[in-house]
């Protein structure tokens, strides 16, 4: 049984339909990447998994249990944490307060606490009293990842974590993802940076216009197949 699965998942914003029947499986311990161009529906997909977008109950299954449409504040307690696109840190809160509020979503202790986060991102300990949104983009991304981990998730959803970051910082962020994965956390990444996605993931799904156009292991997919699935040519 898959840890997290979507079956014929659709997402609507009023009259506009963003996702058209997406099927995806995420096995325990895997790292899976969702790639696709702007407007392909990747973020809508992640927000639906996290409970921020409405979904049919049986469209999202957690260990076979229907959880679609569960509000986000309950979804995180079921073990699904989202690092949202644009980080969305709380400007009124310091670095440490941003991390601590993440712990509010924890229902089970899986070993993620302040010490564990600071061991992966030592810079955050040095800057713990600083307002989170006054830090550099890369450091803010670390806070956003740490904040999601503080909820001790089974599945970590990362939406565009490399967006707007310098290549060296992207490398650091993905090194951290590798460590997080090493601690047994299942990871689902949405990524526009193809190399980063293919380097980190066990499997890849490609989205185009709200539909899955390709699925496979990075080593098995040719550049042409990805190109066709990505751009639809």
């Amino acid at each position: 049984m898959a840890l997290l699965e979507t079956r014929n998942l659709t997402v609507h914003y009023g009259d506009f339909q963003a996702l058209f029947g997406v099927d995806m499986r995420l096995e325990e311990g895997e790292t899976v990447a969702v790639i696709g161009a702007n407007g392909a529906g990747k973020s809508s997909f992640m927000k639906a998994l996290a409970g921020l977008n409405k979904a049919r109950s049986d469209a999202i299954l957690l260990e076979g249990r229907p959880v679609g449409g569960t509000p986000a504040y309950r979804m995180v307690k079921l073990g699904i944490a989202l690092v949202p696109e644009g980080r969305r840190l709380f400007p009124s809160l310091s670095v440490e307060e941003n991390l601590l509020i993440g712990a509010n979503g924890a229902a089970v202790d899986r070993g993620w606490n302040l010490d564990a986060i600071y061991s992966i991102f030592p810079i955050l300990k040095e800057r713990r009293r600083q307002r989170a949104t006054t830090m550099s983009g890369g450091q803010q991304q670390m806070v956003a990842i740490g904040r999601a981990l503080m909820s001790n998730p089974r599945v970590l959803l990362c939406d565009e974590i490399s967006l707007g970051l310098a290549p060296t910082i992207i490398k650091d962020v993905y090194a951290a993802i590798k460590q997080i994965r090493g601690r047994g956390t299942t990871v689902l990444l949405v990524e526009q940076d193809l190399n980063a996605a293919l380097g980190a993931a066990d499997r890849v799904y490609c989205f185009m216009e709200g539909r899955v156009t390709l699925e496979g292991r990075p080593g098995e997919l040719t550049r042409e197949a990805i190109h066709d699935a990505y751009f639809g040519v």
């Binding site: 409970g51 986000a72 504040y73 309950r74 995180v76 400007p91 009124s92 601590l100 979503g105």
Partner: peptide
């Protein structure tokens, strides 16, 4: 206080504070 942290975070973003398990 912890409750105050929630109040400030909710004031910052009522949408994204939900990801912290806060209604």
């Amino acid at each position: 206080t912890r409750q105050g942290r929630m109040l400030r975070a909710t004031s910052d973003s009522a949408e994204y504070v939900q990801l912290m398990g806060v209604n």
